[in-house]
Design a protein around this nucleic acid. Sequence first.
DNA 1: AAATGAACCTGTTTGC
DNA 2: TGCAAACAGGTTCATT
Length: 271
Amino acid sequence: MPELPEVETVRGGLAQLLPLPLTIRSVIIHRRDLRIPVPAGLEEHFAGRQLLAIERRAKYLLWRCSGAVLISHLGMTGSWRRGDAVSRRHDHVEVVFTTGERLVYHDPRRFGLLAFANDDALDSHPLLAELGPEPLGPDFTTDWLADCCRGSKAPIKNRIMSNAVVVGVGNIYAAESLFRAGIRPDRAAGRISRKRLARLVDCIRKVLTEAIAAGGSTISDFRQAGGSSGYFQHNFQVYGRQDQPCTTCGATLRHQTLGGRATVFCPRCQR
DNA sequence: AAATGAACCTGTTTGC
DNA sequence: TGCAAACAGGTTCATT
C-alpha cells in the first residue's frame, strides 16, 4: 500500500485534478465489505454536500465537505482514479459530482475502508483518535521518540511502524530510514542512544520528504491520481535489495523477518 | 502489558 | 507447461 508519501501524492493529485469546490450528486457503493464495512447511510449522508478540500491525516485521505468529512484508507491496494466509461473488476465505490466528474475507488484486496465523521468531531473519530504525531509535523520530536522507546525490547523497526509512535511510516520507509540512520532494524528500541534516535527522527523526515517530492514510489500498480508513476523506488537503498551490495560499503545486504514483514539491512553500516 | 503471529483478500511471482 | 506455495505497500485481533 501506499505509505505516507504515496497517500500525500494521491491527495495532491486529486486536489489538482478537481476544480474545488464541487457538489456531490451521489455516492454509489458496489461493495460494502471492505476491511471495515462501509457504514449504512454513507451515500445519503454525502449526496448534495459540497466537497471543499482534500486533506490527509496519517495514511487517511480526508474529503472535507460542508458539514461532514469522508474518511478513506487505501489499505494495500486501494486507489482513486478519475472515472471513465469503463468500469473494472474491483471498482467498489463511485463519487459522482454535479459537473459529471466521477471518481472511482478500486481495491482488489479490499484492505481499504471508507467511513465518515462530523467535521467538528473528526479528531475524536475512533479511526483517528489514537494516532501518534505526523512525522513531518512539530510534535514528532526526539523527546517523543525517546519516550516511546524507553524500556522497550521491541525491534526499533516495529516501534517506528506503530501508528501510536509516529504515523505514515510503513515497511519501505521504515527500512530506508533505518539504513540512513545507521541503525539495525532488529535493535531493541530501548537500547538506542538519544543521539542516534535524534538522527533517526531526522532521517525519517528526510526520507519521507524526498519521497513526496518524487511523487511516491511506484511498485506493482500504485499510480498517482493522474495515472503517472512516482519515481522514489529508484532511490531505494535497502528495500527489495537483499543479497545485493550495499550502496555505501559494498557489503551484501541481509534479509530478515520482523513483525511478519520482510526487512533488509546492511550488516556493516547498520548497528 | 508488551510482543508475536495470524487473519483479512486477491493478484502476481517464484519454485518444483 | 502447470500447479502450488510464497509473497505483497496495512491494520487489527487473539494468543503467549
